[in-house]
């Protein structure tokens, strides 16, 4: 398709521009899910400002999608962008953006509109474009798209970003280098050997 020719050079993928395309698309999604929040920062402290960008959540999504039996990150980015283009057309906007190596249509949308796109393609009827060559069917794509919400939260609020420089190596070799921002924001103290809080409560008493 002509729309995807940005990543093609003489019929071959230019790996860097494909990478940018996928990363920018996933960043746009992760940013909509866990954005920067200056208002929360003002009210509750600077730590609340940070979001998915600082915790590499888009990279987590790409890594997860490419760990499925059928690697899916490039296809997911294409599906998101094609759905975004359709959405812009429906709104009467000129979707023919100038050649742009970045996240294209999807990242042009407002944060709320990006999520609406994800919701739209979370049902089989909502997917208008399945990338050529993908061995998955529409029904198989739906659960993977729905999983993006869970993956984002797991990527952001679990320990994963704290693996720091080891976050992309094999899971068996990763080392926790620091406390993730997500833990700081929610007040999770991290793993524990025990809490000295035993004791049933009055309300549990049988009488």
């Amino acid at each position: 398709m002509a729309d995807n020719s940005d990543g093609l050079k003489g019929g071959l993928y230019d790996e860097n521009s494909v990478y940018d395309y996928v990363v920018n698309t996933m960043k746009a999604y992760a940013d909509a899910m866990v954005p920067h929040s200056p208002d929360l920062a003002e009210l509750y402290g600077r730590i609340q400002f940070y979001g998915a960008v600082e915790s590499y959540t888009a990279e987590y999504l790409i890594m997860s999608l490419d760990s499925y039996p059928t690697p899916f990150a490039v296809a997911a980015a294409e599906i998101l962008n094609m759905a975004a283009k359709q959405y812009l057309m429906e709104k009467g906007e000129d979707p023919d953006l100038p050649k742009d190596p970045g996240g294209l249509y999807f990242s042009k949308l407002s944060q709320e509109d990006r999520l609406k796109i994800v919701d739209r393609i979370s049902s089989p009827g909502g997917i208008i474009y399945v990338p050529a060559g993908l061995t998955m069917k529409q029904e198989d794509i739906v659960p993977v798209i729905s999983a993006l919400n869970r993956l984002t939260m797991m990527g952001y609020y679990s320990e994963w970003s704290g693996y720091g420089s080891t976050r992309f190596i094999s899971p068996d070799k990763r080392m926790l280098e620091y406390r993730p921002i997500g833990w700081e924001q929610v007040g999770y103290p991290g793993p524990s050997k025990g809490y000295r809080i035993a004791g049933a409560f009055n309300f549990a008493q049988k009488k």
Partner: peptide
Amino acid sequence: SPGINSTMIYGTSQKGYYFQ
């Protein structure tokens, strides 16, 4: 732990996003 907890109470729905 917060990753699992958030996916369970906020990250899984058949009704789209809360603002919808």
